[in-house]
């Protein structure tokens, strides 16, 4: 446990010191999105990696958080700090209610149902023009502020978003090591066996679904208040798939893995920009190569690779 805490402290320190290295360049802006995507990946990982339930509709919850926050603050003049928890609670309740029928489904039926849910939410964003501004988007969302401190620059937003992200990491680590986490893993391995030893697997799945939705919604609110403009295109099926990819590439069931996956897939397009029209091909090929050579995700694959390299080097020295 102590080791866990030390690891987290080191991670947090690194996150806090990062801005010193960049002095407010545009990469700060990208790192803000790394933070938001890390939150989302962890949320999805709780569901997929721990409880073993797939979701192809998480962009919907992300979008609901963003739109609820955005509409309440931009159109109704609410305080953002009030809108954010209200959005999260609303999305949580919605997920809880819809979780009962949806999580009864298994395998590809579950994939299909969550996909459908995501698409329905996306269409609602597009069609309720009076409320959401429709496909043209919603602008004029205020930045968050504490007293006189307005989070209106990349550096300020960085600390804001990463504050939430670190809290999410801490929460997820705690959850994973708690009784609930163990019960979840039992459900993952065998639902029947878990039921036999007294885990209310159905309720547990629904609860984790709701928790996952709540964190996604919080990430959505943060997104809305840092971007100050949102449009439905950011919350479509493609983004749900991208989130899934982040979780798997990072490593299923690993919190730090989710961070690595989110960081890699958010930063990758920045590196690939130099490749111009070839970027999309390289991106696709990299995804495939990574799953082929690191089937356990970055969090397991990188240390393994490192060990192999050491061995190789050792072998060379012997020779």
């Amino acid at each position: 446990m102590k080791k866990e805490l030390l690891k987290f402290a080191a991670f947090a320190l690194l996150v806090m010191l990062m801005p010193l290295a960049f002095k407010g360049g545009y990469l700060m802006n990208v790192l803000v999105f790394v933070g938001i995507n890390t939150m989302l990946s962890i949320a999805l990982n709780l569901l997929l990696g721990y409880a073993g339930q797939i979701s192809l509709g998480h962009a919907g919850f992300f979008g609901l958080g963003a739109y609820l926050s955005g509409i309440l603050t931009a159109s109704y003049g609410w305080n953002a700090w009030l809108a954010m928890p209200l959005a999260a609670v609303t999305v949580g309740i919605l997920a809880y209610l819809i979780g009962f029928p949806i999580l009864k489904l298994k395998g590809h039926y579950l994939a299909m149902a969550t996909l459908g849910l995501g698409i329905i939410i996306y269409i609602v964003f597009n069609e309720t023009v009076d409320l959401t501004g429709g496909p043209s988007g919603l602008s004029g969302i205020p930045n968050l502020a504490i007293g006189g401190l307005r989070f209106d620059s990349d550096v300020k937003n960085y600390y804001l978003v990463w504050g939430f992200t670190l809290a999410t990491v801490l929460f997820a680590l705690n959850l994973a090591n708690s009784r609930v986490g163990r019960a979840l893993r039992a459900v993952h391995d065998s639902e029947v066996a878990a039921r036999v030893v007294g885990v209310n697997s159905r309720l547990l799945k629904v609860q984790i679904f709701a928790v996952s939705a709540i964190f996604s919604s919080l990430a959505g609110s943060l997104y809305a208040h840092t971007m100050t403009f949102i449009s439905p295109a950011s919350f479509g099926f493609n983004f749900s798939v991208e989130l899934l990819t982040m979780v798997v590439i990072g490593g299923l069931g690993s919190i730090y893995g989710s961070f690595l996956g989110a960081a890699l897939l958010t930063l990758l397009p920045e590196f690939l920009r130099a490749a111009h029209d070839y970027d999309i091909i390289i991106y696709g090929a990299l995804l495939m190569v990574m799953v082929m050579f690191m089937p356990g995700g970055l969090v397991r694959g990188v240390p393994e690779l490192y060990r192999k390299l050491i061995k190789l080097k050792g072998g060379a020295d012997h020779a």
Binding site: A10, L14, L31, L267, L298, P303
Partner: peptide
């Protein structure tokens, strides 16, 4: 921590 170092060096 090694992984994080690698990520950082990429960013730099």
């Amino acid at each position: 921590m090694k992984k994080i170092q690698i990520v950082c060096s990429f960013i730099m």
